[in-house]
Design a binder for these strands. Sequence first.
DNA 1: AGATCGGGGGAAAACGTTATCATCTGAAGT
DNA 2: ACTTCAGATGATAACGTTTTCCCCCGATCT
Lengths: 343, 343
Amino acid sequence: MLGLMASPKPYRAPVLADVARAADVSVPTVSRVLNGSKYVAPDLAQRVNEAVQALGYRPNGAARSMRSGRRTLVSVLAGATANYGYARTLQGVETAARRAGMSVSITVVESGEDEHVRAAIDLTLAQPTAGVIVLEFDRAGINAAKALPEGLPVVVAGGGSRRTGQVPAALIDERAAGRQATEYLLHLGHRTVHHIAGPTEGKHSGRTDGWRAALTAAGAPAPQIMRADWDASAGYRWGERIAGMSDVTAVFCANDDIALGLMRALSDRGIDVPRDISVIGFDDQPLVALWRPSLTTVDQDFEDLGARAFGLLSQVIGGEPDAASSVKAPQLVVRESTAPPKG
Amino acid sequence: MLGLMASPKPYRAPVLADVARAADVSVPTVSRVLNGSKYVAPDLAQRVNEAVQALGYRPNGAARSMRSGRRTLVSVLAGATANYGYARTLQGVETAARRAGMSVSITVVESGEDEHVRAAIDLTLAQPTAGVIVLEFDRAGINAAKALPEGLPVVVAGGGSRRTGQVPAALIDERAAGRQATEYLLHLGHRTVHHIAGPTEGKHSGRTDGWRAALTAAGAPAPQIMRADWDASAGYRWGERIAGMSDVTAVFCANDDIALGLMRALSDRGIDVPRDISVIGFDDQPLVALWRPSLTTVDQDFEDLGARAFGLLSQVIGGEPDAASSVKAPQLVVRESTAPPKG
DNA sequence: AGATCGGGGGAAAACGTTATCATCTGAAGT
DNA sequence: ACTTCAGATGATAACGTTTTCCCCCGATCT
């Protein structure tokens, strides 16, 4: 009859009442001990701690957060996770959150379409979240930030040079960086600088703005913007076309992947970087320093961005009235892919 | 006196009772409508839905999960997040979870030290989690998997060729891949294959095992293993030494970063890949195809790994008795960095 | 010695939801 | 016309915790 026996213990996780019984104290006392309240006798506290150990008790997070109203989960909404910038920013958020005793959840917004935005938000808010950090690197993130309900603590992390709307933001000043990169190329003696931009993100991108500003300030002609997706293959395809253009001597790419794809295409066609054409990327992924030629690029401190975003969210959650946006300027890293023009 | 006025509405998120009042129905009825129960009159349902819309009501996840016992959060424990393999696996988990209507939380285990392991587990289990996926790519993950309490749904995702302990696992057969890569080099005519391994992970690594098995099967001599960290600089340092070794004609690297660092070091010393030395990597990061020469490597389907891990966890949570581990073999991708030896 | 005070601890309420149970209605079956 | 039944709804309990309230006690003060 063994096979028909009901399982003897369906294993129920121990709860506060079990601990209280084992320690022969009341339920609130156990709670007090666990939450480090003073006003509890040492011997009782010890009995409780022993019972907790013995039973392997873990507080039920749902019950805890429901009753106390305290939330220990922060949610990240992002258009992607595995791309370098996203992943590093997420890492920065996670590290900061962990040090503060909070957990991080991540939800991907598949696209900027209403449907995807709404689905992601619904999923995120189904958890008892203390607040939301939106990675505003793409349209999905931008739309998600707009669609979040009022009254919920929200901060944005992104590449603008100033705050977007009313939401506090941790920012990287892409505009300044784009300008600096372009100015560097002009300073080397290039007549103008071509630009491969990322997919259009609403009105403008800071990188593109900075590029244009530098050209205007220097009185240099602004060539037509070349649009590309974020990945290397898009850079490669533009490289094929640029190889046939005689007037291009310097290219500022919206990210490292595009730059590497471009360089490979040029290399495949016998065009030398940086002798024939200079190339600058954006992000400073670890591998680009190994490239031949190593890539001149803009170092964005994504981890710091994530940490700042979390800090800001903490302030907002804490109700601090002057939760101020922060902006940090990325840094140009000069390597081998840039040089004065041939002439 | 304006400055001294108490804020008029401290904003309390609407709850079920508010909706019920607005729709003039009972609280349970609202719950029924929201959970799609039948047995509710169409006109009532509509009133409820309108009230939900009007008030912007969102169910309180904590209360919901406490009462129903249903959990909609799965937790990922990992030794890192931003590295390519980790990030892609996490992406796979997130996508699968989102499709299943579940959220994902991520906690980094800083090291294999007891202290860090315990801290990470405590943090994770403070959330009302339905189950845990441990990324067993390093010692931190391995130790975390061991230290998780009994009775909690746990699965492992990693690179073993068979299950570790009693925990169901989604695996990538690194051993088979290591063997295949090594056999390919031998097949090209190399007398033996050198190997740069990752940091020692307990007893062994599947990649290293496969390498050794291939050499043994072919009767080739097994050179001393070269140990390295996972990053490119470690590969570079080995490259500096390998440049001075005359007997090295082929190197199998434990990951792509190491391989790229190695290739750069060799290139810096005028050693041609693949003419003088063949190099194989492991992971197939997107950029390695752009390298010059493009890298022969092993494609690991990390996203699929994450998806399988989530599927497995779902089964475990659902109480399916035969939640079977799955193993998938990665694939060798032949590119330009491998060739027959000179002689 | 009686009033006062504050540490220590238990009883009970409360959080917002879902599950159980009971009740009510109207239609179908005799 | 009287039961029967199923659909529809509300009252109430329950989940596991924290918070509030109150009582007890011994120590200190008049």
